[in-house]
């Protein structure tokens, strides 16, 4: 009886010792599944995000209120200087408004003369940024809009200043947004007045880099970076940022920073692009 007791105790100790090893092996297996980007895993992640995000939203409420209160106090303290700045901007914008009206009239005339076929109407929706699920190893956000709101994979997240990223996973009520600073992000862009075609690649820092630069291209600090429209993922001409460094790697400072924004506009340009088709083929349809 005593022998049996000791044997049981020994077995228990061995199980205790080997259980973490077993779980480490299982975790390694999970990494393998994760790296292969299994569509079922993606679906599980979307479903979990759908279920958890309302809880995260509730837990984060006190922090949001605190932030909003601090912002309110800051606004009150800077109201005079803001007012002065807005007056100056308003004067400038009145001039731009007249130019825009003249250009719009010219465009209409030209379109009529050329019998121009207009491109598809774009649809958009505005969603709250609910969670920052990135960090050191990724740059992604979760936004409060999903398939129930008509959001589709590939929708572009834009602000008046420029682009933030695109929707890569769509859940029922929340979706995952891949920022252009993420290490998996590759965007065909045009740089400067010469419109050199390059690829903007994220590296998980705030400053994505330009690669595949054409030979002899002279890119200098201050050059504007816009989407080129190649590959059909994004329409051409969406502002991205400005070149800030050309020593060694060419770094770009994006116009939009996710840190400073609470809401994002998601635009569906209705592009029948290859990337979206490819991604849809890999994933079985969500029942």
């Amino acid at each position: 009886m005593e022998n049996k007791f000791f044997r049981l105790k020994k077995l228990k100790a061995q199980v205790k010792l080997f259980a973490p090893v077993l779980f480490l092996i299982i975790a390694l297996g999970l990494i393998g599944i994760g790296v292969s980007k299994n569509p079922y895993m993606v679906r599980i992640k979307n479903k979990t995000a759908d279920a958890i995000m309302p809880v995260v939203h509730v837990i984060g409420a006190p922090v949001r209120w605190g932030k909003s209160a601090i912002g309110g106090v800051r606004d009150i303290l800077t109201v005079y200087s803001q007012n002065k700045q807005l007056r100056e901007e308003n004067q400038l914008l009145i001039g731009w408004k007249n130019t825009a009206l003249k250009l719009a009239a010219d465009k209409k005339e030209l379109e009529k003369a050329l019998n121009y076929v207009p491109s598809k109407e774009v649809s958009y929706l505005t969603a709250r940024i609910m969670a920052d699920t990135g960090g050191t190893f990724a740059r992604t956000l979760i936004v409060q809009a999903g398939s129930e709101n008509g959001l589709k994979k590939g929708a572009v997240a834009v602000f008046p200043e420029g682009m933030l990223g695109r929707i890569v996973e769509v859940g029922t009520s929340v979706s995952r947004l891949l920022e252009l600073t993420d290490y998996t992000s590759r965007i065909p862009v045009m740089v400067g007045k010469e419109r050199f075609l390059c690829i903007l690649t994220g590296d998980n820092t705030d400053y994505p880099k330009l690669i595949s630069i054409p030979e002899g291209a002279e890119i200098s600090v201050g050059d504007r970076v816009i989407t080129s429209g190649h590959a059909g993922v994004f329409p051409s001409g969406i502002a991205i940022g400005t070149v800030i460094s050309v020593d060694g790697e060419i770094a770009v400072q994006p116009y939009v920073n996710a840190k400073t924004n609470e809401f994002v506009r998601l635009v569906d340009f209705g592009l029948d692009d290859t990337l979206i088709k490819e991604e849809t083929c890999e994933c079985p349809a969500d029942e």
Binding site: P20, A27, L30, G135
Partner: peptide, 26 residues
Amino acid sequence: ICVFFIGVFADTLMSTPFGLQTFFYV
């Protein structure tokens, strides 16, 4: 077991490669 499932939960929520946090928590 709890540590493993906390890791899986973190991996499901975050965008890091799946299993990475589970492995390092364990």
